[in-house]
């Protein structure tokens, strides 16, 4: 894989992989990954005629890791992507996200309907579904509450040779890399700050605003073995999508679909990106006085 480049946006340095030529695709990883998550898809998409941009989102990989919770609000991170794409001269990319990256991709899609071509989301459904989780989803998300206590969560996860962190991660994803990444200075707090900024009980109390519709053609992919995110998130997302909606359930994958079923994901993306027309924004009838 080629070297990562770095660009300064929004007061942070964002490291990213930039490979291939053609229509641009942005690949957004989740927790606790980095652009490395997409190592199987990057060459496949580049080979398939796309320019692939895979950033390390702020707080992860080789990008900056501000230590304040406020630095990790969803809107701020969406702004990182907007700033990154405009610095690279990209006007209308396909956006693909996994886990937290999927949450960012959803938000990017409904906030910037004219700056997105196709949307593909893996594992995580529309934030509108997650705003009213079932009790089963709340139980599966227990760790998000554990991550809420600055300093204390870090200590609990790190002590006894990172025992609790290992137990939470199990043998999934790039489990043998996560700990090395998280042990880098400031990385653990930075990663947890994503949950603190966006998944605190306090955030749930904030009045909900209606979500603008997603107009882009959208592909949702969910792994049947996912222990962290339940299928309801993806199934319930359909009603937030105005554009063409397609749902794929991958039986042989858990939460880390890009790693568990690398070829299936590459194939789905190659077959989906750039194939559909987006829905038109609703024109509100002018009010006549």
């Amino acid at each position: 894989m080629t070297e990562k480049k770095t660009v300064r946006v929004n007061d942070v340095d964002i490291a990213y992989v930039d490979e291939g030529e053609g229509d641009p695709v942005i690949l957004l990883h989740g927790y606790p990954d980095s652009s490395y998550l997409w190592r199987h898809q990057i060459p496949a998409l580049a080979e398939g005629g796309f320019r692939v941009i895979a950033p390390d989102l702020r707080g992860f990989g080789d990008s900056s890791k501000p230590q304040e919770i406020e630095a990790y609000g969803m809107q701020t991170i969406v702004n990182d992507i907007v700033a990154l794409t405009s610095k690279l001269g990209i006007r209308r990319p396909h956006v693909v996200g996994h886990d937290w990256g999927a949450a960012i991709a959803w938000m990017y899609a409904f906030l910037m309907p004219r700056r997105i071509d196709h949307l593909a989301v893996l594992s995580v459904g529309h934030p509108g579904v997650f705003a009213r989780p079932s009790i089963e989803q709340r139980a599966a998300s227990w760790y998000m509450l554990l991550y809420q206590f600055p300093g204390i969560s870090e200590e609990l996860l790190r002590r006894n040779g990172w025992r609790l962190f290992k137990e939470i991660m199990g043998r999934d994803g790039d489990h043998d890399r996560y700990l090395r990444d998280m042990a880098r200075p400031g990385a653990l707090t930075a990663g947890l700050n994503w949950y603190r900024a966006n998944r605190s009980p306090e955030a749930e109390l904030r009045p909900a605003r209606p979500f603008p519709p997603v107009l882009a053609p959208t592909l949702g992919i969910w792994g049947a073995g996912d222990q962290a995110l339940r299928e309801e998130g993806m199934l319930g997302s359909a009603k937030f999508v105005k554009g063409p909606w397609r749902y794929e359930r991958v039986e042989e994958a858990g939460h880390w679909i890009p790693l568990d079923a690398p070829e299936v994901v590459s194939k789905l993306l190659l077959g989906f990106l750039g194939t559909e027309d987006s829905a038109q924004a609703e024109r509100r009838p002018r009010r006549r006085l």
Partner: peptide, 9 residues
């Protein structure tokens, strides 16, 4: 952290 990350249990 080298122990934890290196596989300490």
């Amino acid at each position: 952290d080298c122990f934890g990350a290196g596989g300490a249990w």
